[in-house]
């Protein structure tokens, strides 16, 4: 079975139940977006799907096989993860950073081509020689996006590949927020699956095929944006009274209409 699936996944960290029986399916060709308030368990769910947190109960399947049964290298060919924060301990250049996503043993010319292609994809085509430490926060975020995309670009084998993004737009201006989401959309159109954590409900509604809303470790709603993003959900998730309106492209929320309940 094709898809990245969390099946009734619970995660307990330090005695606290961070994730409670959460189930999510990311199909190839789909963009799934996790939304929810701070501390709702979005990143933990993403980590469980990425294979770096072992569920206390439930299981995570990548195209039918337990994610924990993959060796790190095999797993890296199937999914790539852009973390919330990306710090480099040493002053690598932008090009070297993008190359960190590539497997050992890849031919040098092919590696150069993949790095160049993916730096261009994020608009850093002419920055390959600059040290990452000299970039702005947003540029650095995009350099790491290029690394993640390069990882998914290497050694294609026909199997779907999953792109996992934890708040990929956090440091970006509007232009690059949209560009990043366009990169994710193109990955899905090319047959890959995308799972993203987003804080901005409007961006989520625009970018997602499926929105999954989490609160206190449990999934409270899941489905197409126009079904899920409602006044009621916004109140449930964020304790904010705001009017959700719609345009043909999907629902949107004006923060100006908001009245906090507390």
């Amino acid at each position: 079975m094709s898809g990245l699936l969390a099946e009734a996944v619970s995660v307990r960290l330090g005695g606290r139940l961070v994730l409670d029986q959460a189930s999510v399916l990311v199909r190839p060709g789909e963009v799934v977006v996790l939304i929810g308030p701070n501390g709702a368990g979005k990143s933990t769910l993403l980590s469980a799907l990425a294979g770096d947190v072992t569920p206390t109960s439930g299981r995570v399947l990548l195209d039918g096989a337990e994610v924990g049964s993959f060796r790190p290298r095999a797993l890296a060919r199937r999914r790539a993860v852009l973390a919330q924060t990306n710090d480099l301990a040493f002053p690598f250049t932008v090009g070297e950073t993008a190359r960190l996503g590539l497997p050992v043993g890849i031919a040098r010319r092919e590696a150069d081509a993949i790095v160049a292609r993916n730096l261009a994809l994020v608009g850093l085509g002419d920055a390959a020689g600059r040290p990452c430490s000299e970039l702005s926060g947003g540029e650095r975020q995009r350099a790491h996006l290029a690394r993640v995309m390069a990882q998914l670009d290497a050694e294609p084998d026909g199997a779907p590949r999953y792109l996992m993004l934890d708040e990929p737009t956090a440091n970006l201006d509007l232009e690059h927020q949209l560009a990043t989401l366009a990169v994710a959309r193109r990955h899905a159109e090319a047959g890959g699956g995308v799972l993203a954590v987003l804080h901005d409900v409007n961006l989520a509604a625009m970018a997602a095929d499926v929105i999954v809303a989490l609160k206190a470790g449990a999934i409270v709603a899941a489905g197409a944006p126009h079904d899920v993003v409602t006044d009621k959900l916004v109140r449930t998730l964020y304790r904010v009274d705001a009017e959700v309106r719609g345009v043909p492209e999907g629902p949107f929320l004006l923060p100006q209409s908001a009245r906090s309940e507390t």
């Binding site: 990425a50 790190p72 290298r73 993860v81 990306n86 690598f92 497997p103």
Partner: peptide, 15 residues
């Protein structure tokens, strides 16, 4: 090289 990204990210790129 990969660990320069942090241990978790190094695992993500296959280490």
């Amino acid at each position: 090289d990969a660990v320069a990204l942090g241990e978790r990210a190094a695992f993500h790129v296959g280490i």
